[in-house]
Structure formats: structure tokens, C-alpha cells
């Protein structure tokens, strides 16, 4: 047992420098109480009048942080993001792909077919941005042409014989804007 303990101590000494040398990517997300959220953000989410419980999160990166409210409203998952001062950034509403305008659906489908050997859409969010009032009207399905719409899709893609998750962003007409690979979290502690 003593030899084993010595082995573990040696292993710690050998492996620990790797963690300090590695550039740590500081992206953290944590739950918040209502008291920790800027008042303007709380008031804005109240104005949407969600009936279900609102969960608040703090998303931190190296240079900035944002507040995010998540809740179910009219049977759809909503995510409202604010900057560090409590100013609205956007509202994302999770929907079915088929519920998007048919023209946009068709353009997006064509793009995904051309861009991948195979694909499967895992999640679709309509992203509303613009002035807070215009976004509020859009979220409440009221007529408004003052907001901007984008579609954010999480897609399981096979490219170059490898399968990964990607986040695609399309504009209101379904035109491609950007793509980012979603890196999986390390899972060795639940695999082995």
C-alpha cells in the first residue's frame, strides 16, 4: 500500500504541470438567484409574463459575462440573454424545424444537404433581436417588422467521414451566415 501511495504521489507530480501549462478555456455557467440579476433584466422577463418558473444563469467567458433567463412560455422553451448591464441581446425560442417559413426551410435544407454527407437536425431556435419592444412583440406573436430574425440550428453532421455536432446560423430567408463545431465535454469519468 505504501508503494502504491508513492506511485500516486509521483503520478500527481508528473501530471499536474500539464494542467497548469494548458491554456484553460474559462467558460462557466452558474445558477443565479433573482436578487443577483440586474433589475432591468428581471423587469423585461416579467413583461413576457411567463407562467412557469424562470431560471437565471450567469454565462462567463474570459472577457465578458452575460445573464440568461430560461423558461417555458406557451409550451415553448425560451432563452433570453442580456449583457452585463442588463441590456437585452436576444430572445431564442425553441421550435420544430417544420414550423419555420417554408421558403426558409427549403433553402436551409438544400444548404445542409450540400454541406454534409448526412445530417440530422437536433434543435432549432428562432433568434429575435432588435429593440426590446420590437422583440417583445415578436415573442408575443404580435405584428412587428422592427425586429430581426435568425435561425440557429444544432445539427448532427457527417463530414469527411466524421460525425460531429455543429451550430449553424441562418438569416430570416434561410441564407447561411455561420457555422461552429460544438466540442463535446470530456466524458472519461462517466465512460470508464
Amino acid at each position: 500500500m505504501e508503494r502504491l501511495l508513492s506511485f500516486y504521489i509521483l503520478l500527481f507530480i508528473v501530471t499536474t504541470p500539464f494542467s497548469f501549462l494548458a491554456q484553460e478555456k474559462l467558460e462557466m455557467e452558474s445558477r443565479l438567484n433573482n436578487e443577483e440579476v440586474p433589475e432591468s433584466a428581471l423587469l423585461y422577463v416579467d413583461s413576457i409574463s411567463p407562467k412557469n418558473k424562470v431560471k437565471w444563469y450567469l454565462d462567463e467567458s474570459i472577457n465578458f459575462y452575460t445573464y440568461e433567463a430560461k423558461f417555458v412560455h406557451r409550451s415553448k422553451r425560451h432563452s433570453v440573454e442580456f449583457d452585463s448591464l442588463g441590456n437585452l441581446q436576444d430572445v431564442e425560442v425553441e421550435v420544430e424545424f417544420e414550423s419555420l417559413p417554408s421558403d426558409a426551410c427549403s433553402v436551409i435544407s438544400d444548404y445542409l444537404k450540400n454541406d454534409n454527407q448526412r445530417y440530422k437536425i437536433k434543435k432549432v431556435q428562432i433568434q429575435y433581436s432588435g429593440t426590446p419592444d420590437a422583440v417583445l412583440d415578436a415573442v408575443n406573436d404580435e405584428d412587428s417588422n422592427k425586429h430581426f430574425v435568425r435561425y440557429e440550428l444544432v445539427v448532427k453532421c457527417k463530414k469527411d467521414d466524421e460525425v460531429h455536432l455543429y451550430e449553424y446560423l441562418f438569416d430570416a430567408d434561410g441564407r447561411f451566415m455561420s457555422i461552429a463545431k460544438i466540442l463535446p465535454l470530456k466524458a472519461s469519468n462517466i465512460e470508464y
Binding site: 474559462l26 462557466m28 455557467e29 452558474s30 445558477r31 444563469y57 465535454l185 469519468n189 462517466i190 465512460e191
Partner: peptide, 20 residues
Amino acid sequence: IASEIPLNGQRADLKEFYVK
């Protein structure tokens, strides 16, 4: 079957606890 449940937020980030 193994599960990893974060104790804060929706994923177990750096310097955070989780239940496995």
C-alpha cells in the same frame, strides 16, 4: 448506466461540484 449531474447550472464547469 452512469450519470453526471451538475450541482450548479446545466453542466459541470471548472471549479464546480457534481454528483455522479
